[in-house]
Amino acid sequence: MAKIIVVTSGKGGVGKTTTSAAFATGLALRGSQTVVIDFDVGLRNLDLVMGCERRVVYDFVNVINGEGNLNQALIKDKRVENLFILPASQTRDKDALTLKGVAKVLETLKKRFEFIICDSPAGIEHGAIMAMYFADEAIVVTNPEVSSVRDSDRIIGMLSSKTRRAVQNLPAIKEHLLITRYAPKRVNSGDMLSVEDVQEILAIPFLGVIPESQSVLQASNSGVPVTLDKKSDAGQAYLDVVARFLGEEPPVREKKGFLTRLFKN
């Protein structure tokens, strides 16, 4: 059964696109047929982070409008087997996505892929709702910072009210908390919310934590998902997140004490 996973947050700039690219790449590295879709219509960026910006011919909206077919729009990653990208349109506005159109594309993708990752635009309007509507699971990306945590809480509210599973009274979307841009030093000095703080406030199951890392900018500079950078701490953390998502218990790398405690509950 194909799984649709939305990467969402409410607030912009917290790491949704970075996470979508890294997570999708990690799943494909593990052998799963994976496609990652850019829902940020008008502000396409996933193509740049994935390093395939010059190979975009047709996009998501073209496919919905029947101006090109899905196979023409899907970009096959050159580095990782089983990995495909469906880019957003750069020229249209967010309303170009319709529930009917999105449903049709997802239905077709479900026949071919195990994991469909939806990179949500920021905000709580149409575009964000389109990205989350059909999801089976949600990765809520949160930075340890007041506005990000508050916006995540609003998004969690929307996941349980504005989505297909909510509207049709189906089993709820499975939620995962992913804390990114985490700086343990600042947490220790008392100037940054800790993993435990954020988890306590948002109260959804914890998936992992990605450190604030220079390698993320270097990766996006060169168009390489950070999970392909073997030396990157953030890349390793994303690989751990993928393993945990697949139901494994990856070795805990840093801060043994507090992380093992978190995973035990």
């Binding site: 945590v149 100037d191 940054m192 919310l193 306590e200």
Partner: peptide, 14 residues
């Protein structure tokens, strides 16, 4: 510490 202040404020507003 500011993180403690942040947590308290967030708990109330959320």
């Amino acid at each position: 510490k500011t993180a403690a202040v942040a947590k308290e404020r967030l708990q109330i507003i959320v």
